[in-house]
Design a protein around this nucleic acid. Structure first.
Lengths: 226, 226
DNA sequence: GACTATGAACCGTGATCACAGTCGGCGGCA
DNA sequence: TGCCGCCGACTGTGATCACGGTTCATAGTC
């Protein structure tokens, strides 16, 4: 029924997803060296699908190949993280602005429950860092999808893949910060702006959400200086 | 010398460059199907480096894999092209704005001769479409490099790879349009803004340059309607 | 005891082969 | 004459092997 046929995903694609999961869930540490043969054994295939997956990840910068061709998880310097946060504010702010102009009522109805679920979780008695990250991601991308700009969305996905390891590391390290995060207020502000078709406010809300999280992580000083 | 060692490029990387050249120079037509074995024979290698190169290109969207796993050069619809031009205005405008704030005197001194070379060529007696494209590219990226935002620059490079086939097709189809293009005025305006450290004007100049070229191509109506 | 040389294990890359699926052209049938 | 079905060539994918280069640990030497 879907417009796009699903011709059984290749092993390379599943390997891509699994390795990306390893990265975004923080199960591999920045700086850690990865071996194609080891990954192949872990995923139960030959090195061929792993090669394809790692190559694609490396193209994004989600993995790094040293000049000696060694594959490692990139270490995020403070400067690199700052540029990443800067770009995220610009691009995701743009997506939110356009979403405010293009979103249908159905789009907004689909976004709202995600926002309330996130807001209830962070004030709840048992905040789950991993689940919070997932909900936050779903919320952001639900908004961006409403902008109907597939190219922009794919570029934002790339940025999230780069930021993933650090964000997850942060959430895991200090899940109780969730109770005090201003994120739900930014989310509510964005949602209200979408309803008003107020692009500038939507941009400001998303941009503020990103800037707040980024400054918090930078303030912790765990990122390598330059 | 250079800070990064050069450990002899792999065949996969050279294949990447050669296939990217095929795309940006317009020697392969949109919609055309590519065969890994054929490319391998043309480049004198096995299919392995070709696989790696094509996979990376496909990750960017510079190549397209059909649900039946056939590799083809993507056809650019009018809608897709519009979004691409839109994003280019936003991101390259941003890069120009930041360049205006971060550019050193040496940066600007390096940019200027490229601008004059482009301007002299388009009014010259024998406008060369291919060379004009190359000069235009060099000029734009010299500006963006001055922004010192490597992540942003790599994302812009991706966008150019997507737009490459269409832009080149346009330039080749009608090189005499070069004589009347307003591009040199946009370039001069951007350069002056860089000197004044006027970010807003630099953004406007680059954005205008892109918008003008895009509207010209769209007006020709050669792009497939959605 | 500290340092260097050496060798084995391991790394990514490229080539080659096997296989299932797809597409097109040719032949036969209505 | 027009249409359908089949068969062969060709597609991308995965596995396996070979090869140069790097890394790390151990043994030998000063």
């Amino acid at each position: 029924m879907s417009s796009t046929a699903k011709p059984a995903p290749t092993m390379g694609e599943t390997a891509y997803g699994q390795i990306a999961g390893l990265l975004t869930s923080g199960r591999v540490a920045p700086g850690e060296r990865l071996s194609l043969r080891d990954l192949a054994e872990r995923l139960g295939t030959s090195t061929m699908p792993i090669r394809a997956a790692v190559g694609r990840l490396a193209e994004y910068g989600a993995l790094e190949v040293s000049p000696n061709r060694a594959v490692r998880v990139p270490v995020m310097s403070a400067g690199r993280f700052s540029e990443l946060a800067d770009l995220r504010q610009q691009m995701e702010g743009l997506a939110a602005e356009r979403a405010a102009l293009a979103a249908t009522a159905e789009d907004i109805d689909a976004i709202e429950p995600i926002a309330t679920a996130f807001a209830e979780m962070v004030v709840g008695p048992d905040p789950d860092g991993g689940r919070a990250v997932a909900l936050n991601r779903d919320l952001h991308f639900a908004i961006y999808a409403a902008a109907r700009m597939p190219l922009l969305q794919s570029m934002i996905e790339r940025l999230w893949l780069l930021a993933g390891p650090v964000l997850n590391l942060d959430m895991r390290a200090d899940p109780r910060r969730l109770a005090n995060t201003p994120a739900p207020r930014f989310h509510a502000s964005a949602l209200a702006a979408l309803r008003r078709r107020d692009g500038a406010s939507a941009r400001a809300a998303i941009s503020g959400d990103i800037a707040d999280a980024a400054s918090f992580i930078l303030a912790r000083g765990v990122l390598k200086e330059d």
